[in-house]
Amino acid sequence: MSLDLLVAILMTIAGAATPLLIAGLGELVVEKSGVLNLGVEGMMLIGAVTGFAVATSTGLPVLGALAAMGAAALAAAIFAVLVLTLMANQVATGLALTIFGTGVSALIGAPFVGITTPTLGPIFPDFLTSSPLLRLVFGHSPLVYLGLLLTLAVWWFLNRARAGLILRAVGESDSAAHAIGYPVLKVRYLAVLFGGAMAGLAGSYYSLVLTPMWAERLTAGRGWIAIALVVFASWRPGRMLAGAYLFGLVMTMELQAKAAGFNMVAPEVLAALPYIATIAVLAIISAARRGGTAAPACLGKPFRAAA
């Protein structure tokens, strides 16, 4: 295998892993605060279409990515009001958010089908990407680097910052956190908004980096994989990074098999691999833990301040 090919493969893996990583880190923070938002897929779609629309209209992909974060955070805010203030069931509301996001994105995106957009391509000057190895380091979209930085930032926030300690406390025992005097709902609102913004950013990666065009259901269920990765990572940012890149590898198997001329297995089977792997990983993890999990103790439970 030539060096060129190897670098190309590694770069596709990074490309496939980055949106999983960003959306997964967002959901990780949300779940650490004790909220289960199953609407990641819907928020990613809203992000993807908003990013695309703004980037094509203004010609500025960076503005598109920012708008994607804002729009998905807005969708997350609706979710937050429903489950936090009105105490709706989190699972049902999350599923509704995904359905809502799928529909709304198709509606907004209808006029944009078939056009291309300026992309968030490599940011470093050409001379830095002249050789394959340099390309491996400098040739990525800025979002790839952002994903890596975000991993570090989320780890630092959760393990070193006081605000992160409070967020974890709220997710571990909302009643105890409330008794000590922490604003449980405010913390959860902020976490949900952050999760929404990250899902939006991850969604825009599909429309602004991976494929510079819009199509309905562009994210193709990757939001669900991001949610599964949170469990896979046992709510730890470092493992989320490893998990996202592992899934990036699995997801690009189909392409790589084609490139390598491997045809012993039907391409459809390879394309289905990430989803099979998701189910396998979740089953293995829950079997291995036998009841005990690293999940935040209050995950998915509504909080009502004691009367």
Partner: peptide, 23 residues
């Protein structure tokens, strides 16, 4: 408190820090 307002999955030190306003 009667039912301790402690966070099971955290360390003693983290629990103490959570109980202080400006640790």
């Amino acid at each position: 408190f009667q039912h301790f307002s402690l966070f099971e999955a955290m360390t003693v030190l983290e629990n103490i820090a959570l109980g202080m306003d400006e640790p």
